[in-house]
Design a protein around this nucleic acid. Structure first.
Lengths: 346, 346
DNA sequence: TAATAAAATGCAATCCGTTGCATTATTAAA
DNA sequence: TTTAATAATGCAACGGATTGCATTTTATTA
């Protein structure tokens, strides 16, 4: 058994005294080839250690069966959920997944978009980096009619397919709920306002305030990168305020729970002194004490739908010219961290 | 600007009245081509919307600059950390990353191993599925001399490169620490014992018990799949035991914190009634109340080292025949969840 | 057995970029 | 201006699988 030589269909053909085309057909279960021949082909292929060359095939077929995915980070539960969803769906549709993380930087996103283009991905799914300000780096995809889809973090633009939730509505619901609990001074800790997810949640927050006649106070909004450190810093700032807010709406669960811990360590009670609501419904929201009010955000489902959508487009079953927005449902999940009155909010 | 036609170097060559080889060289910054010509080539390529075809290149070069990665799950903080590390490293070495999740099933792992082989990955990094019992599906990699490396979850076998931590030692340290805190009846909640990570931690647990003359009691060991549900179930079983354990060593932080919550909800105090230790040093261990004693497990670092190692091998700078084991350091992180005496354990 | 239909196999071009070697154009030295 | 040396470009084969069409083999029918 030679470990060095790479076996091709030509080698098999030679061994069996057949034409390469017959080998190719045989390996593809083409009915035009005699079952006995086919069996011999497979046996010989195995014996010789043949593995087919996807490149040669792709080159010929002008298809790669590979989808590119660009996300800001890999080590986030929410992103992981999206990826898991994409992977499951792609797998059952027989596509591979090429992944890159932009580390929240537009420059990386640009670079990866190009790499994926050269790798001839059949489609691309993107979750934008925090500081991405233009979509120029995706222009080539449009130009080459390569299906492109944004999940979760998108840019308002009718030309692109997107899968999102209604962040404005969700932000509005969280804030309204806090107000219903009697909170009047509600702080908001959020991520980069360049991104719709944070921008919209904030918009919902503002509209709920407005609707209830609570003036919007810029100094109550903390725009951060939502890392562990900045969450702690923000929480400390809140503690130090002269008139402390009676509620905090945080744009993700992890940050919310981190703030909660800082508050508790400072002797504040939750929700007595300050109510806290998060976003995502990560496991962590069920483990914190008190349990965290949050928004159930169907990450895995978003991933699945995004992938399914993209595959449909690739297969040409959907009109590529028709940009589509899929808005998934999210639900407010009320838990102890915001229940000021004993009577259940429901 | 034609959006349909796919531009090749031949099209550029024709337009510029040059040979395709010159175009190819020009695009590769080959010094043999006149700077002025090169400029013209780049300009024309841009103008015509040319993007090079990685397949044709790969086909020719017999290299893909792509690394395959097979993990059991994507939606786990620990796995994500490993992936993030791999990605960072591969990126700076200019490799792409093709990812699949086995969903903890050997059959998927087998299938993906084959797909990656056909995709001609230049190397493969694997974190084994829970129920993988044989490594036969990786035989082809050995046969074709494709660098293969196992991270974290490995199988004892001198033929493979691995990057791990010393789980036995870590398990031993956790257990010894619990014993030092005065615990005498220590339960252990773990994952599939087919996997070294869990097997070894348990071995460490057992040897610590033995060393301190505590008899090993099978009924105190819970082998589960470590999901949220089974963790809750195990915690409830523990509560119901006639003589309740005074400590619980869980094989990962998330499960540990889930158990902690079940215990607290049942009115038990931590660590008073039962001390708890986890594994991984996830963020969650810092947020739980009390904070969780755990083992700092350098996931991202493992990923980086694994990737670096693999790339070195691919480039032929390492002797492929020499299987290597890299053992990273892990540290016991003592926190309140196991500190029975006020005096700091250190 | 010859003629016809059907099944199986073969031929050759194609996908597109790369590279060793040959050839032509340009510059420097004589 | 001629020759030698160098720079720039071109030629053509290669990598491996695919597929429309042609050809050969086998089975069917008259």
């Amino acid at each position: 058994m030679n470990t060095e030589k790479i076996i091709t269909i030509y080698d098999i053909a030679e061994r069996l005294k057949l034409a390469p085309s017959t080998i190719s057909r045989g390996l593809q279960d083409n009915p035009a080839v005699n079952p006995k021949t086919r069996k011999k082909i497979f046996d010989t292929a195995n014996e010789m250690g043949y593995r087919f060359n996807t490149f040669a095939r792709n080159l010929r077929n002008q298809k790669t069966n590979t989808i590119g995915v660009i996300v800001p980070r890999l080590n986030s539960l929410f992103i992981s959920a999206i990826l898991a969803g994409i992977e499951k769906e792609l797998n059952s549709a027989n596509y591979n997944m090429l992944i890159s993380q932009s580390l929240e930087l537009e420059e990386n996103e640009i670079k990866y978009a190009k790499t994926m283009l050269h790798n001839r991905v059949d489609g691309l799914i993107v979750n934008l980096a925090a500081n991405t300000s233009s979509l120029d780096h995706f222009a080539e995809y449009i130009r080459h009619r390569i299906p492109l889809l944004f999940v979760d973090r998108v840019i308002e633009n009718d030309d692109f397919n997107t899968v999102v939730i209604n962040n404005t509505k969700a932000g509005y619901e969280v804030t309204s709920h806090l107000i219903a609990q009697g909170c009047t001074k509600i702080a908001h800790l959020t991520g980069s306002l360049m991104r719709n997810v944070y921008q919209d949640r904030k918009a919902g927050y503002q509209s709920a305030l407005a609707e209830h006649g609570i003036p919007y106070d810029e100094s109550l909004v903390f725009e951060t990168d939502l890392t562990e450190e900045s969450s702690i810093r923000a929480a400390r700032e809140i503690i130090k305020m002269k008139t402390r807010p009676d509620a905090l709406f945080v744009a993700n669960d992890l940050s919310a729970v981190i703030c909660m811990k800082v508050f508790k360590d400072a002797g504040l009670t939750i929700p007595g002194d300050i109510a806290i609501a998060g976003f995502n419904n990560d496991v962590i929201s069920r483990i914190s004490e008190p349990m965290l009010t949050t928004v159930n955000y169907p990450g895995e489902e978003m991933g699945k739908i995004a992938a399914r959508h993209l595959v449909t487009q690739i297969k040409g079953e959907a009109d590529a010219a028709l940009a589509n927005t899929v808005i998934l449902k999210s639900q407010l999940v009320v838990r102890a961290s915001t229940l000021k009155n004993k009577t259940d909010d429901q």
